[in-house]
Amino acid sequence: MGKKKNVTASGIEIRKKPLGLRIWNHRGYYLMFLPVLIFLLIFNYWPMLGVRYALYDYKPVGEPVFVGFKHFEKMFSTTAFWTAFRNTLELSIVKLILSTFASVIVSIFLNEMGNLMAKKTLQTIIYLPHFMSWAVVASIFSLFLSPSSTGMVNGMLKEWGILAKDQMGIYFLADQGYWRPIYYVINLWKDTGWGTIIFLATLSGINPELYEAGDIDGATRLQKMRYITLPALGNTIITVLILNLAKVMNLFESVFVLYNNAVYSVADVCATYIYRQTFAMALPNYGYSTAVGLFRSMVGCVLVLVCNWASKKTRGRGII
């Protein structure tokens, strides 16, 4: 096969200048790019070389010792790792679906609000939790959900007669049955408002003539939402889902501040497992935690590629 040539519409061949000359001609752009390239190499690529320690026993003291796939064998045979892996996927995916769904619903309601003042106020209120750090959020909810006599939620349950006065309060954040629902609720409270921004932007871009046409055809408000608003949001919903799906393995901070050893079986995720294996040991073996981290990154990488493929299929263009 011959090399593809660049030709004009009239068939005149365009000959490319040599690479060196082209770089020289665009030296300003390359110069601007240079700091970024150096930054990327130093802070993104160089640290990646540390993944080789997944094949080593690497402790704070002594030289790293090559051990082959020993850490991977240990990892795959450890129940706690698989629990953390399963929890990561389950928590992330459920959280993603719930938060996307809630954001869409809230966006539609906000869009339907006629009173601009009330709409702006409500928007501000629901955006605010996003700006609170997870540590603060965890402290607030720990107080609310405390099982002791000072816990607000348990106090209310007793006041309403749901719990007997002398009954022990429910330890929501240390109960395997309650932890996940509580976790999802806290996430919804914190991030639903922020998640509406992209959907509200899409909604504001819908052609008003479509609604006018609906009015002329006698469509109810619900029918307009069903047949105009939701289809218009469809592409954005898929985009948001796909983009966030690529990040499901990154779950850490929100779990770390809310979990405890009573709920490891339903709350421990890969990143918190790595954290404990690294930072809770008097003499940690960074080799093992690197191996777990590498596996987690590889799964994340596969998810990104899957999302890219899904994006191409649904939107006609990839995300990378």
């Binding site: 690497y58 402790k59 704070p60 003291v61 690294t278 930072f279 809770a280 040991m281 008097a282 003499l283 940690p284 960074y286």
Partner: peptide
Amino acid sequence: GYVDAVGRLFASQDYPDVIIMSADMYAQY
């Protein structure tokens, strides 16, 4: 976060001259 911070110091070969250790750390090191 002392145990973790000491581990990081050593891993980065940033060795002090003297350092305080708990009994657990002493037994391991």
